[in-house]
Design a binder for these strands. Structure first.
Lengths: 219, 219
DNA sequence: CGACTGCTTGAGAGTACTCAAGTACTGTGG
DNA sequence: CCACAGTACTTGAGTACTCTCAAGCAGTCG
């Protein structure tokens, strides 16, 4: 794994300009190429990350090789919030990605601003917990079609724009939704046949029928 | 819903004596009967709870009535940690239950001890996040038999003793594991036929073959 | 152009679900 | 003490959904 390049601040952020807050003041910018890892499951490290641009995948591995994607992170998102000194998941750039990094243990040296940031991190942890529980609901109580539709809908909302580019391969979507790659593919085909979404190639899509999409997601 | 009785401290705790810490100093004791709710999804409230004895069920409801149990809590456990002023889940006593309650917003009035507790709560939130992700793995990547075996194994470890009494009905187990009640029942029957566990009635069980149990859980 | 990787499609099998009936446990009133 | 009702749990049969295994197709890069 090549050593990630350390940037000089401030950034030019082309996608989602982060508000000037404690994270920007304290954080150090780092750039990752696709496939490069921020940290690996089992590592030591208490650093917290904020995505400036690009996309990140957090994954956990079981002994037998089964994999779970615990989340995807895009511009503005925080990740690496799990407590304890050991990482419970790995984090990896899906595309060219710029992040800000803050070492949690260093916050106490920054006085009031460090404290502000610490509070913000904890509250983000609580939100992450809520999101994890919502995702659990999605994964346990919904059909394959509903999960895939929900995923596309959330991606469209998160990344915005008319056409949306998926930064992750099918296998990642499958591992995130608790499905196989074949089932994801079949559901995508069905959503296209039903004219709910439209694809240009296998990564770029747009929602054609927002109302039917919404009814699938709400169900 | 009857008003829960407020206890005078200190408690006589018969199951898991909590260590004397910040929560014990600040918390107010409350008793709930089976079925009584600590809070309901959508409520306002920032109170955090610690179970002294008994058992609590946290659940989330979907619009269409589908239900997800986000967790069970027993002696020593904290719950109600989700941030934001609104509750994202409901919490309900499964059996006679004693808890300590702390209002988060009141912590600032308690000086150093309040701050200590606040830190403890945040770190517990991080641990809850990790556990939620582990549970997601269990629910998405494991077979019905593995899930039910894993559930019994965890219950035995959590509640201790030779024989274990399940405080919750089958429907709750099903909603926790993302299965139907019939499937849970069938898997329990199979575990008994395979002589992995033994039941006395439908709530009390013990593990007969810890090694085979462990291999089911690890898988 | 060919090789490689990622994605899609097809056929068949297996697992968990649905619907329905039957059994056990609990508490109440006679 | 027993009859009864009500609830919780188990069992059965058939179905539906997702997975597995295998082959075919598309986009990318040298």
């Amino acid at each position: 794994m090549p050593t990630p390049e350390v940037l000089s601040l401030p950034f030019l952020n082309t996608t989602k300009p982060p508000s000037i807050d404690a994270f920007d003041r304290i954080g150090v910018g780092v750039v990752y190429r696709p496939g490069e890892e921020m940290f690996v499951q089992g590592d030591e490290g208490d650093a917290v990350y904020r995505v400036l641009s690009g996309a990140v995948r957090a994954s956990r591995l079981l002994i037998d090789g089964r994999r779970q994607i615990s989340g995807f992170y895009y511009g503005g998102d925080l990740f690496g919030l799990e407590t304890g000194s050991r990482r419970h998941a790995s984090a990896e750039a899906l595309v060219d990605t710029r992040v800000l990094v803050v070492r949690r243990s260093s916050l106490k040296h920054y006085g009031a601003i460090g404290e502000t940031l610490e509070r913000a991190l904890w509250s983000a942890t609580g939100e992450a917990l809520t999101r994890a529980q919502e995702h659990m609901m999605l994964v346990t109580r919904k059909s394959a079609l509903e999960r895939v539709a929900g995923f596309l809908d959330e991606m469209a909302e998160r990344l915005g724009g008319d056409w949306v580019d998926l930064p992750m391969p099918r296998q990642d979507i499958a591992d995130f939704l608790g499905l196989t790659i074949e089932t994801v593919s079949r559901m995508l085909t069905q959503l296209q046949q039903d004219e709910v979404v439209q694809f240009q190639g296998c990564r770029r899509f747009r929602i054609r029928a927002p109302s039917r999409m919404a009814s699938l997601v709400a169900a």
